Simulated scan of single mutants.
Amino acid sequence: MKPTPPHQPPKRKNLAVAGLVITGVGVLGLGLIGFVASTRSEPDRDASGQVTSKQTTRPEKLRVGDCVTELREGEVKDIGVQPCDQPNGGKVFAVFELPAGAWPGLATVQAAAEKGCTDRFKAAKLKADKPSDVFFLHPVEDGWTHGDRGTTCLIAPK
């Protein structure tokens, strides 16, 4: 003899279908939010390319001449930008790509980014208005595996 599955009342079946639909809509909504966050557009700029207001952007959207609200140690996923006529945490003076290839290790990437920024600062014969440091944003391993080789150089007040 073969057992037969119990018959599910229609009410439970309707609840199950509703649960699946709600879950699907939720997953699509979260996916859309993630997509929008990852494809954020350029910061708002005027005709000359200058940032027009305080806003948040991705580090790879920074351009030479942009000013950031502040710089922090550690991985940077979003960064504040603002017009440079306001007190700021640093100004971008160079943007360049590190050479392609397999991930060389964090210490190697940091050394290459620091050397690239320092060399560019010296070559441009830049002078800081007040005591400052050269600061750089560089790729991390996860970004490197997705093709990120960008390095952004900033002069930041001490």
Rank of each mutant, 00 (worst) to 15 (best):
E75S: 09
A94G: 02
W103P: 13
E114V: 15
P59D: 06
K61D: 13
Q86K: 01
R45V: 03
S38W: 04
V36M: 09
G90T: 09
S53Q: 14
I33V: 15
P87Y: 10
C117K: 02
D66E: 12
L62N: 01
G34F: 12
S53P: 02
P43Y: 10
K77D: 08
R40N: 11
L32C: 09
V81K: 11
G49M: 00
D119T: 09
D85K: 04
C117A: 05
K61C: 03
A107C: 06
I79T: 10
G101H: 04
E114W: 14
W103F: 08
P83T: 09
R58P: 00
A37L: 07
G116C: 09
V95I: 05
P83H: 10
I33S: 06
V109R: 01
E70T: 00
L62Q: 02
L98S: 08
P99V: 00
I79S: 06
T39N: 02
V36T: 04
S48Q: 02
C84G: 02
V36S: 07
C117S: 03
T39M: 05
A47V: 05
E75I: 00
E75N: 15
Q86A: 12
G105Q: 14
G49P: 11
G34L: 12
G74H: 03
D85E: 08
Q55E: 12
V92W: 10
E97M: 08
F121G: 06
Q82S: 14
E60M: 12
E75D: 08
F121V: 03
T56R: 14
F96P: 06
V68K: 01
K77I: 12
A102G: 15
D46S: 12
Q82P: 14
G101F: 07
T108Q: 15
A113I: 15
Q86H: 05
S38Y: 08
D119K: 13
S48C: 01
D78F: 10
V81E: 10
N88Q: 02
T57R: 01
P83G: 02
A102Y: 06
S41M: 08
V68A: 03
G101P: 01
G49E: 02
Q86G: 05
K54P: 03
G49Q: 05
Q86C: 02
G101D: 03
G34M: 04
Q50C: 04
A37C: 11
E60S: 11
D44Q: 04
G65I: 07
P59E: 12
E73A: 13
A94W: 00
G34R: 13
R45W: 11
S48F: 00
Q110P: 06
Q86M: 02
D66M: 06
E42K: 12
I33D: 09
A113K: 00
I79G: 14
V51E: 12
L71S: 08
L62E: 04
A37D: 13
E42N: 14
L62S: 04
K54E: 13
I79D: 05
T57F: 02
A37M: 10
L71R: 00
S53C: 08
S38M: 13
V92A: 09
D78I: 07
G49K: 01
T69I: 00
V51S: 15
V51H: 15
T52K: 00
K115M: 13
